[in-house]
């Protein structure tokens, strides 16, 4: 019973955290994108427009929740949650502070890689149940893309596991030392690019490709269900940045105590900003280019990284 209550509390905490992360992430993206595009971004709602996302959220909640006439209604309604829940779960294994992860499991690294990948099922459900050609194409593109980028992402993280000798995130963090940044730099780059592809953001936003597929798999969603998709995207972006900032860049290892947490937050923010920067600078790849990039560049690079690490690890 206590396990259930604990889970409930952590779940609520994680949900709140993701909501805040998404609220902040949207605002931050709009501000950064504005600066990149010689604009100011939101500015009238609250100081520097910080309340803009809250206003948008209120609007989205009040909007009519439209279900297309020919949609598979139950699947259509369920799909956003199937996308969102795995992303939310992935927050639970992130090592937030020294000796603390909400869910301290011995397979944490694996958990972080495997569970968010389940959201592809939700995307497929959403795209298929809309009974809309664009949504279906978007969903199929998303499935192909996310499954392809799972591999290099996992291989990149695997090199850390080899160095640390454990797949428990807290053990990895404990074993972490600054020279790992150099040793795993290619792996980190692969992880970062694959993470962008995982959360379907530009330049890998092929499944939603606004100019081709209108909005891809969530073309027919509106109001709060649409915003759950967006929350999943921003949540995934923040989760990938948190995890990358922790296990690849050392997170809170740099400074003791509260200073470490601040460094961790700063690193995360830097990664989120980099994702926004990339999205608003690069054009979008084509689906076949995306695939050949995954299989011909990313995966070999991750394998080479793994081999290098595996060769040097026994000599440590």
């Amino acid at each position: 019973m206590s396990g259930f209550v604990g889970g409930l509390i952590w779940g609520l905490a994680a949900g709140t955290l993701i909501a805040i992360a998404a609220l902040f992430g949207v605002w931050w993206e709009r501000k950064v994108a504005g600066r990149i595009q010689m604009r100011i971004g939101p500015q009238t709602t609250g100081p520097a427009g910080i309340l803009q996302t809250i206003a948008d959220t209120l609007k989205l909640i009040l909007k009519e929740d439209i279900t297309p006439d020919q949609a598979d209604v139950r699947v259509f309604r369920l799909a956003p949650l199937v996308v969102f829940v795995p992303v939310a779960m992935s927050f639970s294994v992130i090592p937030f502070a020294a000796g603390f992860a909400p869910l301290d499991t011995s397979v944490g690294m694996l958990f972080f890689l495997a569970v968010p990948a389940l959201s592809v099922i939700g995307i497929l459900l959403g795209g298929w149940s809309s009974r809309n050609t664009y949504a279906t194409i978007g969903a199929i593109r998303a499935a192909a893309q996310m499954i392809s980028y799972e591999l290099p992402r996992a291989l990149a993280v695997l090199s850390l596991v080899v160095l640390a000798g454990s797949i428990r995130p807290l053990d990895v963090m404990a074993a972490w030392s600054p020279w790992w940044i150099i040793a795993t730099a290619p792996g980190f780059i692969v992880y970062f690019i694959a993470s962008i592809a995982e959360v379907n953001r530009g330049p890998f936003d092929i499944p939603e490709a606004e100019s081709e597929l209108v909005a891809g798999y969530f073309a027919d969603y509106s109001g709060i269900r649409w915003s759950i998709f967006m929350m999943a995207e921003y949540g995934g972006m923040v989760a990938a940045s948190l995890f990358g900032a922790a296990v690849f860049l050392g997170g809170w290892n740099w400074l003791p105590g509260i200073g470490g947490i601040l460094v961790f937050v700063a690193l995360t923010l830097a990664l989120v900003t980099a994702m926004v920067w990339v999205k608003w600078t690069y054009p979008r790849l084509r689906a076949d280019q995306l695939m050949s990039f995954a299989w011909k560049i990313m995966t070999p690079a991750a394998i080479v990284q793994l081999v290098v690490v595996a060769v040097i690890a026994p000599w440590l």
Partner: peptide, 16 residues
């Protein structure tokens, strides 16, 4: 052509 390929920033620069 920027917007069609997903480069929204190019679109804004050109429109400026």
């Amino acid at each position: 052509s920027g917007a069609d390929t997903g480069a929204a920033t190019m679109f804004i620069y050109a429109f400026d």
